[in-house]
Amino acid sequence: MDELRMINFLDAFITNALSIIIPLLLVSRGLDVVQIGLIVSMSPIVFVVSRSIFAAISDQVGVRRFFILNGAMNVVSLAVYLVASNPLLFSLGKMFEGVRNGAIWAVNRTAIFLSKGRKGAVVEMSTTQAIRTGAAAMGIVMAGLLLNSYSFDAVLVFFMLLGVVLFSISFLVEGKRKSKIKMKEIFGQLDFRKRSELLKKTSLIMMPFSVATAVPLSLAFPLFLRDIGYSYWLIGLAIALYYTISAVTTFLFMKMKWGKRATWLGGVLFLAGGILLPFLGGWWAIPLMVIMGVGDGVSTPLWETLVFNSTRSSKDVSSDIALVHIPPNLAQAVCLITAGVLVKLWGYWLVFGLCGVSFVISFYFSFELLRESRYRL
């Protein structure tokens, strides 16, 4: 389990550093918000496809080789960004990022599920998510610091070297299951129509949940902060504080066993922060993003509960976990493109407001679904 935490730490460190480096690099190359939204949307599209295929295969051959693939794709995507000179190559880099994310998330929860069981998996995965969130904050701060002093190319080389370290550590993951890949079984495992009504409902509820945080973190936050005059260092600091507060909140939520009321309070805080952020801006941006981070933090255990509850009777855990994430990730891709258009036409206020509303709505339907499925919170 320790090697899984190390892998998750490094993967989140690199992944989230890139989430601010690449949009800012694209801005420096003269691309507008619509073009950037289109490029960034490539990652979740490829992620959906690759994760589903990898998950079905992993149910037959085990998880180890997909952690190795994740490490390799971290290096490859960074190498592509180093040589990229046009939007097409940047889109290719985002596609490799999609494969990278697909590889780790095809097996991440499964490795924990098989080790801890359903009840223990919720706690361990929430802990792992907190580790990833803390690592994300550190990676973003590091990116901001380095960009203040060095060129984009030098910063990309630094993170590529970290990718090599991650690739090396991934070989420590144990592999137990060995069998030949049976394509007929894979297609059966990926047939969404044959899945339970609970899984289908969960995947729909997770759509607004996913979009509400993905759009700000992948697009709106770095571009908005840049537009209001924040330096690379301050952009990194602001987004890192969001992640740090989110991680601390998740940890406290699990430790103190806060309940449903605390979760609802987090939802309201996220909504309030999203509505106020584009109007107040300036130095208010940082405390308002911190408030949104609190809301994001209390949502993590709820998200993991939804995932494991939807797959509680599953025979093919990896496949079903991947399938339940397909609609949310497709929604991310569509909304990243849409958000770029909305920002260009009407400004950031509409995008942040819609994200806040989506976040709160997802809480309501999540609790209703868990009540219907008789899950004890």
Results as ranks from 00 to 15, higher is better:
Arg261Glu: 14
Arg261Thr: 15
Arg261Tyr: 11
Arg261His: 12
Ala262Ile: 14
Ala262Gly: 12
Ala262Asp: 12
Thr263Val: 11
Thr263Trp: 10
Thr263Asn: 09
Trp264Tyr: 15
Trp264Phe: 15
Leu265Cys: 08
Leu265Ala: 14
Leu265Gly: 12
Gly266Ser: 10
Gly266Val: 07
Gly266Ile: 06
Gly266Ala: 07
Gly266Thr: 11
Gly267Tyr: 11
Gly267Pro: 04
Gly267Ile: 09
Gly267Ala: 02
Gly267Met: 07
Val268Asn: 03
Val268Cys: 00
Leu269Glu: 06
Leu269Trp: 05
Leu269Gln: 04
Phe270Met: 13
Phe270Glu: 07
Leu271Asp: 00
Leu271Val: 12
Leu271Phe: 14
Leu271Arg: 13
Ala272Cys: 10
Ala272Asp: 01
Ala272Gly: 05
Ala272Gln: 06
Ala272Arg: 01
Ala272Trp: 02
Gly273Ala: 04
Gly274Trp: 00
Gly274Cys: 13
Gly274Ala: 11
Ile275Lys: 01
Ile275Asp: 00
Ile275Phe: 13
Ile275Trp: 02
Ile275His: 00
Leu276Pro: 06
Leu277Met: 09
Leu277Tyr: 01
Leu277Asn: 09
Pro278Phe: 01
Pro278His: 05
Pro278Asp: 00
Pro278Gly: 08
Pro278Glu: 04
Pro278Ala: 08
Phe279Arg: 14
Phe279Glu: 05
Phe279Thr: 06
Phe279Trp: 14
Leu280Val: 09
Gly281Thr: 03
Gly281Ala: 13
Gly281Ile: 10
Gly281His: 09
Gly281Asp: 00
Gly281Ser: 13
Gly282Gln: 08
Gly282Asn: 10
Gly282Met: 08
Gly282Pro: 07
Trp283Arg: 09
Trp283His: 06
Trp283Leu: 11
Trp283Ala: 15
Trp283Phe: 14
Trp284Gln: 05
Trp284Thr: 02
Trp284Pro: 09
Trp284Met: 12
Ala285Pro: 04
Ala285Asn: 10
Ala285His: 08
Ala285Phe: 11
Ala285Gln: 13
Ala285Thr: 14
Ala285Trp: 12
Ala285Tyr: 07
Ile286Asp: 06
Ile286Cys: 07
Ile286Glu: 06
Ile286Pro: 10
Pro287Arg: 03
Pro287Val: 01
Pro287Trp: 02
Pro287Lys: 03
Leu288Trp: 09
Leu288His: 06
Leu288Ile: 09
Met289Asp: 04
Val290Arg: 09
Val290Gln: 05
Val290Asn: 08
Ile291Thr: 13
Ile291Asn: 04
Ile291Pro: 02
Ile291Arg: 04
